[in-house]
Amino acid sequence: MRQIADSKHVEVLIHGLADAVAAVRLEAPADQTWALVGIRNRGDEIARRIARRLDAHGDKPPVPVGSLDITLYRDDLSEIGSQAVVGTTDIPFELDAVHVVLVDDVLMTGRSIRAAMASLIDLGRPRRIWLAVLTDRGGRELPICPDFVGLDLTSEPIEAGEHVYVHLKPADDKDQIAVGPIG
C-alpha cells in the first residue's frame, strides 16, 4: 500500500475543505442555516473535523453535524445481499430549508452520493445539498460533481483494481490517504 498523504497533509486538506465551505457561507445571508452530514464510516469523521474548524472561526453559529448510513439506499443491495452491514443514521436536527454539506471520503462512481441524496430527501427537504469530498479519484458512473474537493486524484495513475483508503483516527490508528489492492 503506498501512501499519498500523511497525517499532516490530511489535516491541511480538511482545513482547506472547511475554509472553502466557510467562504461560501460567508457570502450567504445571515439567516441561512447550515449543517454537515457525513457518510459513514469515514465521512462522518471528516464532517466533525470540518465543523471544528468552522466553529473555530467563530463568526457564525455552530454547525450541527450528522452521520448518515446509506446501506439501505444502495443500488447494489440485491447483489451484495446479506453482506450488507446496516449502521445507524444519526441526524439530530431538522433538514428542512437547511443548506446541507454532504461529506464523503472518496468520490468515485457517484453511486454512494446518489444513495445519500435519496436518503437525505427522505429525511426532509434541504434548501440545497452541497458535496464535499476529501479525495476525488474519478471514474464517475452518474452525473455527480463535487462542490469542494480536498485532493484531486483524477490524474493519478490508480489502477482499476486498486482502492483509495482514507484512514482517520479514532477508527484507524493514524490519519493518512493511501492506495492499495482491494480487500
Binding site: D69, T71, L72, Y73, L77, V85, V86, G87, T88, T89, D90, A118, S119, D122, L123, G124
Partner: peptide
C-alpha cells in the same frame, strides 16, 4: 440485533420507508 438498531430511525422520521 445490531442490524435492527439501524432500522429503528426509519419509524420515527417523516418518510417511514427505505428502498431496501
Amino acid at each position: 440485533l445490531t442490524t435492527a438498531l439501524g432500522f429503528e430511525s426509519v419509524s420515527t422520521r417523516s418518510v417511514k420507508k427505505v428502498p431496501a
